[in-house]
Every structure is written in C-alpha cells, then in structure tokens.
Write a protein that binds this DNA or RNA. Sequence first.
DNA 1: AGGTCGGCCTGGCAGC
DNA 2: TGCTGCCAGGCCGACC
Length: 281
Amino acid sequence: MPELPEVETIRRQLAPLVEGRTLEALTVADARWCDPLDPREVEAAVGGRAVRALSRRGKYLTWELAGGVSVACHLRMTGTMLYDPPPDQDPPHARVTFLLEEGHRVVFCDPRRFGTGELLLGSAALEAFHAARLGVEPLSEAFTAAHLRSLARGRRAPVKAFLLDQTKVAGVGNIYADEALFRARIHPLRPAGALRGAQLGALRDAVVAVLEAGIDAGGASIDDFRHADGVQGSFQHAFLVHRRAGEPCPTCGTPIRKLVAAGRGTYVCERCQPVPRRRSR
DNA sequence: AGGTCGGCCTGGCAGC
DNA sequence: TGCTGCCAGGCCGACC
C-alpha cells in the first residue's frame, strides 16, 4: 500500500513529465473521489492550468497548479497513478484522468476506491490542509531525536499506534512501522511515552533508514502498487519482518510472530523486540 | 483529552 | 468446482 516511499517514488517519476506542462482537463469518473465536492466543480477549477509542481507531503501527492489551485491526492490502500497507459482503453479501475498536452495523460486507478482528491484554492489553503492533519516530515531536518522525544512524552498508546498517527510523524504506514520498530529493537506494544531517550533516538534513525531504503527500492509492491510506468517496486523482497510470520528472524532465528497492534497486522521478533512486562502474547 | 473501534470498499483466498 | 464470507487496512467519525 502506498506509504511515503511509494508516493515519493511516483512523484519522482511523474514530476519531470508533468511539471511545466498544462493540465488541459481533469475527468472524474467516480464522484466518490472528490466527495463532497461535485466532480464538475473540481474539473472546472483545474482545467487549463499549468502544472507548477508535483509535490509530496506525508502520503499526499499534490498537483500544484497556476493560480494557487491545488489537488491533494491520497492513494490510500490500492491507488496507482499510471502515465500514458495503452491509449485504446482505460486501464482497470480507472477513476480519474489528468489530461496533459499532446495527449499525454495520468490515470488514477484504485480497485478499492478508497483514494481521494481534495481541491484547495490558494497556497494558504494547502498549508492549512497540511498543518491540520500532518506532523513532522520524517525525511526533513526537523525530524530529530529530540523532536521525536517531545512527541512521545507522556503518550500511553502503543508505539506502533504512535508511529501510524499521521499528525505526529507524516508518511509512516504499517509496513515501515514494523520494519523500523524491528530495526530499533522496540516491541510495537510498548507505550510510546515509556521509551527511553536512547530508544527513541534509535527509532528516529530506523524510521529514516527504512524510508530511505524503501525509496531506493522504488517502494514495496505487495498489493496493487505500481510505478507510473506499471513496474513493481522491490522493497517487499527486503522486508525483515513484515509479512514474514513463521520465518526465522534475520538476526537471531526466532520465528517471527504476527500479532495485532493498533488494529493492524503487526510482525515482530519477540526475542529481539522484548515484550512489554507481563507475558508474551 | 486522548485512546479505541467500526465503516468505507473490493479482490483474493480459506473453507466447505 | 463453485460459492460464500471473511479479511486486509489508511483514515475519519463515533464512542468511551
């Protein structure tokens, strides 16, 4: 599912293809995408505007257009943004088409229809949108160990839930949370506020490391994720624990266990990631 | 206030 | 074999 590295992979691929060109038309085939706005309203607001930038913040991919008009897209679980798919017919599950100059197009496909597009009028609206729902950008200089400590202080929620909270750290999802916690040797059910400074420092470093590794691998394709050209990412082959229940821990050989944390399937090595007090399970 | 949980949605797969 | 039903999960809103 598209998390920060997957969205960044798409952004890096599409940006040079769309920036500086004109978005001649937007076609919204599924009204749910921009609900509660009427698709015609969104189409009219963006059609004919030059693409100033294709940017990313957290898991949002945003078309920044002339006149301060933006469309912030979220791919959720199963969304992809395909560039110039075969022209004779729409690809499966096509929901929105961004028509560019000379017949080029970007098609948003989404089997589960969870993906969304938000129309934002004015740069202040885009900033307010980000500020309201997104915390620190983990690949920015602002994401320091001290910052993570201040975010975690006093929090009793499991550290996995804390990592998945986009208003704290933006862009980490289920895959990268599991991988970061394993690398930092922290059990996902430990309360975030109970972690010592050194552990939060290790977690900060691990989050950065797994996100960068994910980007280097072109993201992870475990469900429907594809690059803009339809190619799969490869980070799923580099998972150390995620989706590897029963396989040996790459560090100590203990079988990896699957449990539920923050309502999500969660993979741990309970030897390398000591279980919080009480007993296992 | 802050944490937990159900609903959204559909492809894929377990189970019969 | 074919059908049913359950599960995955990011995010939001409802609840405690």
